[in-house]
Amino acid sequence: MKAVKYKDPKPAVVPAKLNLWLFMLASSMLFAATVSAFIVHRPDAEGRGAWTAFDLPIFFLYSTIIVLLSSITAFYAYKSAKNDELSQNKTWLLVTTVLGTLFCVSQYLGWQQMVRLELTFVNARPEDISASYVWVITMLHFIHILGGIGLLIGTWIQAIRLNVHKKSMTLMSITHTYWHFVGLLWIFLYLFLYFAQ
């Protein structure tokens, strides 16, 4: 196919990337809303004895470590794709996906631990509003992680089809950015819940 005589102006940023950033902004607002609801609600409920501070399940700490590790592997996946090291790229993608799945497992175990401590989502005891918040926040984040894993698998499939390389980085860089975002989000949420509890 021959090129057209005139060219449309090229967008400064790949639209999909910009869209991703805007999406991340919007979902940060969702977390900002839940987190500020938590902050505003706490003194109010505490005044009426309807708030128990409790230690976060240890598995959430493991999740944090896993998510940190996966961010590193995601970075290597990105870097290898950029350097056209395709086999390494696939490996790193796979490792990141596995770590992501491990994160999900760890979250699940964490929730089980909470259930065992009777810190259920629906407050069996009135004092457990704090638990409800932890559930909502972690669950919302979990949905984001699932999206991230979907992206990782998608990128991996594309990598197998040799569609991820130096000159075709859009999908890879989107996955990379998004994965860092959910990772950072989790670290922030964990620290917040850890110190605010």
């Binding site: 607002m29 969702l30 609801a37």
Partner: peptide
């Protein structure tokens, strides 16, 4: 973009 997610949060709590 900045305010609708907050409504989503409010609606989620209400749904719960």
């Amino acid at each position: 973009l900045l305010s609708f997610p907050v409504l989503l949060g409010a609606a989620l709590f209400l749904i719960f």
